[in-house]
Design a protein around this nucleic acid. Structure first.
Lengths: 176, 176
DNA sequence: CGGGCGGTTGATAGGCATCAAGGTACGTGG
DNA sequence: CCACGTACCTTGATGCCTATCAACCGCCCG
């Protein structure tokens, strides 16, 4: 089995290194999550993790064979991750910029909230290029979409600093 | 832990039942795969599986706590599934119809090949509506894209019957 | 002060969604 | 056996959204 890491502080992006040298973002990780689940049962790392800020990782000691409680825990975590990947699939398949960006914001908001941070005052640690890569858009479109949401009064923003003004309205956008 | 099933024959689609009653396809399953991995460690089924043809499922007996070999096997399978979900993410994020359809075809071809079927003579068990939902497109666009690939001489088709004429050229489309 | 990175905004073109209208295959009932 | 209906696929016309290219701006840092 491969090595697992617990993310204690900071944030990461999981990227796939394209053959053309272009990196494509698969997801973002915040404290409290386990890094390396997709490599479980595989000795090779299929993705790269890049820190978005000063970050504290903690190697998880794997006692090897026979630790039943740990294995059950691992299975539970991987199930959760698989279900969240399903959500990601749904988000990407809608093929509509506004919905993708809003879903991303709500997702980030939930992550921040779970960390005890504000769910409405978001300081995004990743660049627009990363967000765009993750959502299957261009960074210009991400910017424009956020501008539109701001003009509708749902949020206020300045670059990567976003303040959600009407959370319910944002959620509503996903059903338009 | 939830129940797992082995798919012995036939094929399934995994769908998410939208609140609006509209179903959205998350993936397709062929013989040799385990059904229900994403629900591991969770007692609730978060997705629905629908048979695309006459299908043979086999319940996997879960002896419960303490079966080390089975748990390790399960972790390995879940890791594989997570990695394949990453591939799906990459496919959806390219945001280009031709590439999505081609990636889908190559994926299906590999699945069929693994079953001992022809990798080039594909009888798709799913409707175009399902493919479109899976790829985040409209079924009209799937049809048009396949027509275009046919006009370029890469394949021959009639509805759900597709014959791949130039596999390498198809793969090449993904890098255009 | 100057350079570079990251973000914003504008103009344009192309691809896909959308709506609409056939077409084809298949099953059903007269 | 054929008319009919339905489900699914195909093709056409049109408009919108977003990619693309380009210019500019603000900020940070050397």
């Amino acid at each position: 089995m491969n090595t697992l890491y617990a993310l204690r502080a900071g944030s990461l992006k999981a990227v796939f290194d394209d053959a053309s040298g272009y990196e494509r973002v698969l997801g973002f990780r915040f404290p409290g999550t386990v890094i390396g689940l997709a490599e479980s049962g595989n000795s090779v790392w299929t993705r790269t993790f890049i820190a978005l800020e000063d970050t504290w990782l903690c190697r998880i000691p794997l006692p090897g064979i026979g630790d039943d409680a740990l294995q059950r825990q691992l299975i539970r975590l991987m199930g959760e991750r698989l279900r969240s990947e399903c959500d990601t699939h749904l988000m990407l398949a809608v093929n509509d910029g506004s919905r993708k960006v809003v879903t991303f914001l709500v997702e980030i908001s939930a992550s921040f909230s779970a960390l005890g941070l504000s769910a409405y005052r978001l300081h995004l640690p990743m660049h627009y290029l990363d967000i765009a890569s993750y959502l299957g858009m261009r960074h210009e479109s991400v910017s424009r979409t956020l501008t539109k949401l701001q003009n509708r009064g749902f949020l206020r923003r300045k670059g990567r600093h976003i303040v959600i003004l009407d959370f319910d309205a944002l959620c509503q956008v996903r059903n338009e």
